[in-house]
Design a protein around this nucleic acid. Structure first.
Lengths: 343, 343
DNA sequence: TGTTAGCACTCATTCTTTTGGAGTGCTAAT
DNA sequence: ATTAGCACTCCAAAAGAATGAGTGCTAACA
């Protein structure tokens, strides 16, 4: 198969860009008129015919114009698409209200991003893969209940109530506190395992059972992040794109966003694939979610330092405005960065 | 206007029930055939004409059958609808996995309910209007930070980190702890106000500032529930009902569920209106949400004891299966009851 | 040899027309 | 009071006709 020469590339780019705007199949005449390469529609037709043969574009039906194929989009995203000016990127800034509650910030972020781009958006709460225990506190709630408070290096606080089988004296609680803090301080959360629990149990002697409960609680607290939390917004934006809004497709799509379970796969895949820019584009089937085979997904990994990472994603029609979306993600990532680093 | 005689009632009931099933306008012939009151279609036609004049049913267009009006539905729900047997209600039990995390339970509940009924569902997390403070614990996190842990009578735990301006000794922290617990123990959360804060500040002497921060934190913690949390599920079920699934309506509807903000109004209204059974039916415009004017909403208030209450809601087309829905809500409420009372 | 004008052909879309049938209202008979 | 019968209405689905955007191909041209 012949290589794409310069002219073919220009034509392909023109086709795709026109299609991104209109969403309608684009014909030879349109390209002939509105591109700067002064060629008659007949010539364009010949080139188009070649491009189709090579698989970059396709015809919905015999007498229609052409639309980009997945392969075409891929080439566009990888090679043809213009990088936006840094300056424009700087001007653009998403309005995100400052607040200290992580949850609120994330909700704000997805919402703003969805409004800005007019696509569906998602963000996963940061996972703290290398977080460490910083502080553990046992307090008596009443004669048979304790509260465990766990604070990690990243200042996440969690707590749980433990039911005791027998009463404990204040002194014992104090000693246990001391023991736990000494042993667990600075330990990566991931390392709390059975061996460690056994060892600590032994040290605690007659209070082994309680230690067990406490460590279970701690493990529990840490583990919460295994099924990572995902916030979404703008799922209904798909109704703006006729090619996605027939009711069965739309229903599936929105369900996916409502359930969130499937989005976890997407996030996991994104986090696994580490890439230079950290921004990935999935076109059609490339995304790990079947209900999105008619969509494109653009994801970015954000990082708040020391293994604290999460994923932002934008889902839209294949003809999404890739440049703008990639740009928005870059800006947003930078913003999240400055926002949290200083905290 | 004449009163509804027995026969008219029977006919109206038959019309509505048929319409609930089919969703199509129902004609005189259908009623004549499938009801047990052996009347010819002509007679039914005359009666229908009367019913229309009285406003209980209406014609989409001249040569179509009749559909119930809002007034018709209202009568049906209030007077015509059959109460289900208690036995049937008992057999039915929604499968809800036991778990101690309130959040998980609520998510489970809405999801199960949505699957069971095939409508859209929502539930508000319980609000603790008369909750009391049970336990406050200040712990040193490091030289300039404290952790406040607040536990309420309903065993809700919340915490927050406080930044200090100057160091405090362990002893001081201990004393503060004592002071706070003594003063605040058993106090209704709602009663923490400015006057009380001022008073406590004074008692704390030089540490007034810290007390202020702590109380702010406590207030904060309590206040979280002001904007009550709502879980939803099955919003996409509306696509199952053609009369609701044209894309602009569907989009608005689903947005309402996605944003959740508007649902708060609904919940508040439900909680305000206290009624004998605690189950309310809003038909069409009766619901306080404009995007639901073509829907019906059935809500129930659940109560977990001592002012701990929340709302469950089901939203569907006007022709929803009211009997079944009301029934499901009753069962569910009972289940929630037994589930949490023993905890 | 690459480009272009011209022309016949295809096919989705849109608009109009036709037809079928479900349902009504009215009247006259029982 | 009920019902059979009939003319009438009007939606919905089917069928048909007009439109026009777009193509592929061929032949002429620079």
């Amino acid at each position: 198969m012949e290589q794409l020469d310069g002219r073919k590339k220009k034509i392909l780019k023109a086709i795709i860009q026109t299609y991104l705007e209109t969403g309608e199949p684009v014909g030879s005449r349109t390209i002939s008129k509105f591109s700067d390469l002064n060629l008659s529609s007949a010539t364009i037709r010949n080139e188009m015919s070649d491009l189709e043969e090579m698989g970059y574009i396709l015809q919905p039906h015999t007498s229609a114009g052409r639309i980009p194929s997945d392969k075409g989009y891929r080439l566009y995203v990888d090679a043809l698409m213009a990088e936006k000016d840094k300056e424009i990127a700087d001007i653009k800034e998403l309005m995100i209200e400052k607040t200290d509650k992580m949850e609120k910030v994330l909700k704000q972020v997805v919402k703003t991003l969805a409004q800005d781009t007019q696509y569906a958006t998602l963000i996963s709460a940061p996972t703290f893969s290398s977080d460490r225990l910083k502080f553990i506190q046992l307090s008596r709630l009443n004669s048979l209940q304790l509260v465990v408070v766990v604070v990690t290096a990243a200042n996440r606080i969690r707590n749980e109530i433990i039911d005791l089988e027998e009463q404990m004296s204040d002194d014992t609680i104090f000693k246990l506190n001391f023991l736990l803090n000494n042993t667990l301080n600075g330990i990566p959360a991931a390392e709390i395992n059975l061996g460690m629990i056994a060892q600590l149990r032994e040290q605690a002697g007659q209070y082994g059972k309680v230690v067990g409960s406490v460590l279970d609680a701690v493990a529990n607290v840490i583990q919460v992040d295994e099924d990572l939390e995902i916030y979404t917004s703008g799922a209904t934006n798909i109704f703006k794109y006729p090619e996605l809004s027939d009711s069965s497709k739309a229903s599936e799509f929105i369900s996916t966003f409502e359930e969130k379970q499937q989005l976890v796969d997407l996030v996991k895949e994104t986090m696994a694939d580490e890439e230079s820019t950290g921004i990935q584009v999935y076109i059609g089937d490339e995304a790990p979610i079947k209900t999105m085979k008619d969509c494109s997904v653009v994801t970015a990994t954000y990082e708040l330092g020391e293994g604290i990472r999460g994923t932002i994603g934008i889902v839209g029609p294949k003809r999404m405005d890739y440049e703008n979306v990639v740009d928005s993600l870059k800006v947003l990532r930078a913003q999240l960065d400055t926002m949290f680093r200083k905290t």
